[in-house]
C-alpha cells in the first residue's frame, strides 16, 4: 500500500474521519465493559452521567480538566516546535514544590503570596526544562529520554524533601508537606461551588498562548522551527534561541498545573498530587491537534472520561483503568484519522 495526498479533502472527510475515530474508541470501551461482564450501554451511560450528569459532576470535571489544560498547553507549545517535552510531570512537581515553599515558609499575606507562588512556580518549571533543552541545543542530546528520566528524578527529589525538611510534623508519619494558609489559597470562582480560580487561569493561559502563536514573532518562529529547522536557520531564525524560549514557556505552563493543584485544590504537596497529568497532557495536546484553544476542549473531554469512569466504577464492576485505555485508544485512532483526512491509501 501507498499513501497519496488528497488534493481537496471534502467536509465529509475532514469531519467524518475524526468522528469515526471517536466512534471506534466507544466500540473499544464497550468491548472492555463486556469483558468485565457489564452491560456496555449501562457502563457508558454511567460514565457520561458521572462526568456531566449533575452540577457536582460537571464541576468535578472542570476541576480535573484544570491541570490537564496547563499540561496540554505545555505539550502543545513544545510539540509545535518539535521540542519533545515528555517531562511535564517533573515540571508540574517543580511548580507545586515552589508553591508550597513560598506558601508555607515566607509568611506573606495572601494577596502577595498568590502571585509570588505563581511566579516562582513558573520560573521553577521553566528551569527544569531548560536543562534538557540546553543539552539538546548545545550537545544534540535527545530530549525525549532526558525529559522522561527527569520525571523519575524529580519524584524522588520530592519524596526526599517530604520525608525530610518539608515533612509536616502533624502529618501522622505520612510523607506530605504542611498546608499553605487559607488566605494564600486560590479563591472559588462562585461562592459555594467547588471550582477554584485555577480553572480561570487555565482558560486565560490558553488564550494567551493562542495570541502568542498567531500574533507574535515568537509564535511565527516556533512554527517555522517546527516545520523545518534547516529552512528556519537559513531564513535567519536563531533556532537554538527559539527552542530555549519555547522550553521556558512550556515548562512554565506545566508548572502552573502544580501551582493550581496545590493553591486551588489540595493545599499541600504529596507524592500523589498528580496521577500522571504530565503524561495525559500529551494525549490532550494531540487530540487538540496542538491548537491552544482546542486544548481546552480536549482537556474537558479527557477529564470527563476520567471523572466519569471513577464514578462508574463505584457503581459497576468495571475497573477505572477503562478510562486510561480509552484515552490511549482515542489518541491512536485520532492521529490515524487526521492523517487519512489528508492522504488516501492506494494499492501498489
Amino acid at each position: 500500500m501507498r499513501l497519496e495526498p488528497v488534493a481537496a479533502p471534502g467536509l465529509a472527510r475532514t469531519l467524518g474521519l475524526p468522528a469515526l475515530a471517536i466512534a471506534a474508541t466507544v466500540v473499544v470501551a464497550s468491548a472492555l465493559a463486556m469483558l468485565a461482564g457489564a452491560n456496555p450501554f449501562a457502563t457508558l451511560g454511567l460514565i457520561v452521567k458521572g462526568a456531566a450528569g449533575s452540577k457536582f459532576a460537571a464541576l468535578e470535571t472542570l476541576n480535573r480538566a484544570t491541570p490537564l489544560i496547563f499540561t496540554g498547553l505545555a505539550v502543545a507549545v513544545a510539540f509545535r516546535a518539535k521540542l519533545w517535552n515528555i517531562g511535564a510531570e517533573a515540571q508540574l512537581y517543580a511548580g507545586a514544590l515552589m508553591t508550597v515553599l513560598i506558601g508555607t515558609q515566607m509568611g506573606l499575606p495572601g494577596p502577595v503570596a498568590i502571585p509570588a507562588m505563581a511566579i516562582a512556580a513558573v520560573l521553577a518549571g521553566a528551569l527544569v526544562l531548560l536543562g534538557p533543552v540546553l543539552l539538546k541545543v548545545r550537545l544534540g542530546v535527545d530530549e525525549v529520554v532526558t525529559t522522561l528520566l527527569f520525571n523519575f528524578i524529580m519524584l524522588l527529589f520530592i519524596s526526599m524533601l517530604l520525608e525530610g525538611p518539608l515533612k509536616d510534623p502533624m502529618g501522622m508519619g505520612w510523607p506530605k508537606s504542611e498546608a499553605i494558609p487559607r488566605d494564600a489559597r486560590l479563591p472559588r470562582i462562585v461562592d459555594g461551588l467547588r471550582l477554584h480560580w485555577g480553572f480561570g487561569l487555565a482558560l486565560i493561559s490558553a488564550v494567551v498562548v493562542w495570541v502568542i502563536q498567531v500574533k507574535t514573532t515568537l509564535g511565527y518562529e516556533i512554527r517555522a522551527v517546527g516545520q523545518n529547522p534547516q529552512a528556519a536557520r537559513f531564513a535567519g531564525i536563531p533556532v537554538g534561541r527559539v527552542m530555549v524560549k519555547t522550553a521556558l514557556l512550556s515548562g512554565g505552563l506545566a508548572a502552573l498545573a502544580g501551582f493550581s493543584e496545590v493553591a486551588g485544590l489540595k493545599g499541600n504537596l504529596t507524592l500523589d498530587l498528580s496521577p500522571g497529568f504530565g503524561y495525559t497532557g500529551i494525549v490532550v495536546a494531540m487530540l487538540a491537534l496542538l491548537h491552544p484553544l482546542g486544548v481546552v476542549v480536549s482537556a474537558l473531554f479527557v477529564a470527563g472520561i476520567f471523572v466519569g469512569a471513577d464514578s462508574m466504577s463505584r457503581a459497576a464492576e468495571v475497573p477505572t483503568y477503562i478510562a486510561d485505555i480509552s484515552v490511549a485508544t482515542a489518541l491512536l485512532f485520532m492521529v490515524l484519522a487526521i492523517l487519512l483526512t489528508r492522504f488516501r491509501v492506494v494499492r501498489g
Partner: peptide, 20 residues
C-alpha cells in the same frame, strides 16, 4: 505516523491494558 506520538500512545495503551 509520528513515532514519538504513537510510541507514547502504545506505552499508555499497554500499561493501562495490563492494569485493567
Amino acid at each position: 505516523l509520528s513515532q514519538h506520538v504513537v510510541g507514547l500512545g502504545v506505552t499508555l495503551l499497554a500499561t493501562s491494558s495490563a492494569y485493567y
